[in-house]
Amino acid sequence: MNEGAEDPLALGQRIVAVLETGARTATYKLATLTALIDHCVEHLPADPSAPLEVPVRALAHRVVEIYWRQVRPFEGQQLRQSSQPVARIPRAVTTLREAAGAQGAGLSLDLAMIRCPEVYAATLEDVALTLVRQPIHRLQKLPGGGGVPFLYDDSWMHDQVSRRTLDAHGGVIRLFHGVAYGLARLSGLLKPALEILWVEDVRRMNRHLDANVPDVAGHLFGRDRTALAPARSALKEAFGARCFYCEVPLAANNPVDHVLPWSRLGIDGLANLVLACGRCNGSKLHALPSVELMDRALSREPAVLEQVAEAIAWPTQYDRVVAAARGVYRGEPAGSLTWAGPGRAVHLDLSSAPDWLRV
């Protein structure tokens, strides 16, 4: 058992070693690790060396959120995510989409939860149990089952673990000291690497995807700009048709930008969305914005955002965005460059951070 806080770089090296040497018969390990990283970012302890309890059902929700987009048909076919005959997690997510009437549509998971609460609850239980029996149980194992646990205690987990056993352990996995901080610190490096491995695995499991098939990565991890059209119109009406970053007047079909980059944390809540011009959107790309810009986004009138959310049935996710921003900035090395506008960058300095970052 890991009793001391591990250096983030060493932690990352161990994770990569497991992923590169272990068998991946499904994308579940990659999904679980992605969800675990995001949870750590959004629940980063104030003490970098502290342990962290992660509710398995909260992890399951994030995994459902990841597959929610991916199970949609790609060029007329649903992409295989497992080499096994039955892919339990994609099947459960597909069942939820069908129950919510989201086939091929841009319906959000949040709205599906409202439309079909019982189906969502059953999906969550199914996915949570699958995670404990499969990827969580195997995520730290080297080929042959060897290796010392370095992320969490998995001594009670096995392929046939019951829901009763999961609940007897509080329904949580307990990350060792310093692991949450290490994963949050490495999020900007690990998540792109996980996506690369994911695309490779999907291509391997779907033989019809040859080199000429366009943008598999975009289907799996991109954000369909047309799906953000309702938010674009509503934000223009509420805040005016000007770029949030540089305040130039906007064209009719301007981008909607994720302040916290979509590639870092896929949060679509209105609190993380702003209107941008093409120049600013293209310049920012995957960069972390300056604390000042993040603070400006979070300082928008909450009541106005709530009115927009109610009008278009779109969540604000304000608390989640605050928690994620706090985790991302605290996990970045002091002095890191952040985006402050086209051609401008500022060094990260938390010595005079806003209140939401100092909590």
Score class of each variant (00 low, 15 high):
Ser187Ile: 04
Leu189Gln: 14
Lys191Ala: 04
Leu194Ala: 01
Leu194Tyr: 00
Trp198Ile: 07
Asp201Met: 10
Val202Tyr: 06
Arg203Glu: 13
Arg203Gln: 14
Arg203Asn: 07
Arg204Leu: 15
Arg204Val: 06
Arg204Lys: 13
Arg204Ser: 15
Asn206Gln: 07
Asp210Phe: 08
Ala211Leu: 06
Asn212Ile: 08
Asn212His: 15
Pro214Tyr: 01
Pro214Thr: 02
Ala217Lys: 03
Gly218Ala: 03
Gly218Ser: 04
His219Ile: 01
Gly222His: 01
Arg225Gln: 14
Arg225Ala: 12
Thr226Cys: 10
Leu235Tyr: 06
Lys236Gly: 02
Glu237Gln: 15
Ala241Thr: 10
Ala241Tyr: 03
Arg242Pro: 05
Phe244Thr: 06
Phe244Tyr: 02
Cys246Trp: 04
Glu247Ile: 08
Pro249Ile: 12
Leu250Met: 09
Ala252Arg: 12
Asn254Ile: 08
Pro255Gly: 09
His258Cys: 05
Val259Ser: 03
Val259Gln: 05
Trp262Ala: 01
Ser263Asp: 09
Leu265Arg: 12
Gly269Cys: 04
Leu270Pro: 06
Ala276Asn: 05
Ala276Val: 02
Ala276Met: 03
Gly278Arg: 12
Gly278Ala: 14
Arg279Glu: 14
Lys284Asp: 06
His286Arg: 12
His286Trp: 06
Ala287Phe: 09
Leu293Ser: 02
Met294Arg: 05
Asp295Met: 04
Asp295Val: 04
Arg300Val: 09
Gln307Cys: 10
Gln307Asn: 11
